[in-house]
């Protein structure tokens, strides 16, 4: 028997106030170890969709399954399994030092102090955050902030890392830092879902691409299949796939 996909979104619909539909009948699935890009122009519903993936928002219709299990039956476990990195890192930070920021999630999970310290140290080593541990997260550069935000999720040992517009507002060095963080994670088997409209920086690394427009999935396939027609959906087609590749 085949293993179920890592994450399955089935016919998800969501409307906000006054029945403004934001997501309409959205279905897709993610496989273990994949690097998927969910692309769409501004206002296409990408962030709202992200908020549903670990149960922060409840859909009006449809369901999400994690390894075949409905996420609403998983309690807090789904928050640990599917880690969300928000677009604005500043809004994700709640602590006054990077070390405490990294420990925030595991502390919420009620892990023993020794285990928290161990996890924080592992992530610190993995992402090269040693020199930043005593700094205030809000005072870091854009790339450093994003790495700390990713670290704050990695300490919870997720199986799927979802990043919302991870390159927004970053200079070349910042983008470089983020990619150099994500590529080794993917090589180690971490599943990634990048939500972005900026394909140039990440398309070269992805193995699957999904186009979301006006709350609907319009195209799904490999980057080679999808990229030639992306401008139809208001997304800039990258000229070359050269970023760190």
């Amino acid at each position: 028997m085949n293993n179920p996909p890592l994450l399955q979104v089935r016919r998800l619909s969501r409307s906000f106030d006054r029945n403004v539909p934001v997501l309409r009948d959205v279905s897709f699935s993610l496989t273990e170890g994949s690097w998927t890009i969910l692309a769409g122009s501004n206002g296409s519903g990408k962030t709202v969709l992200m908020n549903h993936l670990n149960g922060l928002e409840k859909p009006d219709k449809g369901e999400i399954l994690f390894r075949g299990q409905k996420i609403e039956t998983m309690g807090d476990e789904i928050r640990r399994r599917v880690g969300l990195v928000f677009q604005n890192s500043d809004l994700q930070f709640v602590e006054q030092t990077v070390a405490r920021e990294l420990a925030f999630g595991p502390t919420n999970l009620g892990l023993p102090r020794r285990k928290i310290e161990l996890r924080v140290q592992e992530v610190c080593d993995e992402l090269g955050l040693e020199k930043l541990m005593d700094r205030r997260p809000h005072t870091l550069s854009g790339g450093e902030k994003k790495r700390v935000a990713i670290g704050g999720i990695l300490v919870m040992e997720p199986d799927l890392l979802v990043l919302d517009e991870p390159f927004t507002g970053l200079d070349w060095a910042g983008v470089d830092q983020v990619l150099r963080t994500l590529i080794p994670l993917h090589k180690k088997g971490m599943s990634l879902l990048l939500i972005t409209h900026d394909l140039a920086k990440c398309a070269a690394h992805s193995d699957r691409m999904i186009i979301l427009s006006e709350g609907r999935i319009r195209r799904e396939g490999t980057p080679e299949e999808i990229l030639p027609g992306v401008e139809e959906w208001g997304i800039r087609r990258p000229e070359g796939l050269t970023w760190l590749k």
């Binding site: 908020n51 922060l56 928050r79 880690g83 809004l91 994700q92 709640v94 919420n108 999970l109 009620g110």
Partner: peptide, 14 residues
Amino acid sequence: TVDRAARSRCFHRR
């Protein structure tokens, strides 16, 4: 958004 990001890291368990 701050609240949502904190809940995403299981803050509601506190």
